[in-house]
């Protein structure tokens, strides 16, 4: 798959999930949703259900990170599939609330 550059947007092949990359490590990352590789936004819609072990769903507006904290993405559209990388599910990132400044 093409490189996961910050700002690039990806869509699930098995549900309505869409994400944008916030941070990504150098090199290849196999980003998945619902157990299947993601595709660039606009290149194919939901097609078949997510794998049972990756069907926890994605949440709108939440950040997801990998175990090494090198990959971070933001869910821009929610869906039924869970996000993962290289066969491991991503973790929900804890938000650190800041006071509103504007």
């Amino acid at each position: 798959m093409p490189e996961l550059t910050p700002g690039s947007r990806w869509a699930s092949q098995v549900c309505t999930t869409e994400v944008i990359i916030v941070r990504a490590p150098d090199g290849d990352v196999d980003l998945e949703c619902g157990g299947s590789p993601v595709v660039a936004v606009g290149e194919g819609g939901p097609n078949g259900p997510p794998d049972a072990e990756a069907a926890g769903g994605s949440l709108l507006g939440k950040r997801y990170i990998d175990g090494d904290d090198t990959l971070e993405l933001l869910c821009t559209k929610p869906g039924d599939g869970s996000l993962g990388a290289g066969g491991t599910l991503l973790d929900l990132k804890d938000a650190k609330p800041l006071p509103a400044s504007d």
Partner: peptide, 8 residues
């Protein structure tokens, strides 16, 4: 993204 929590 760095300063606002979505839907907060």
């Amino acid at each position: 993204l760095g300063s606002v929590d979505f839907g907060s």
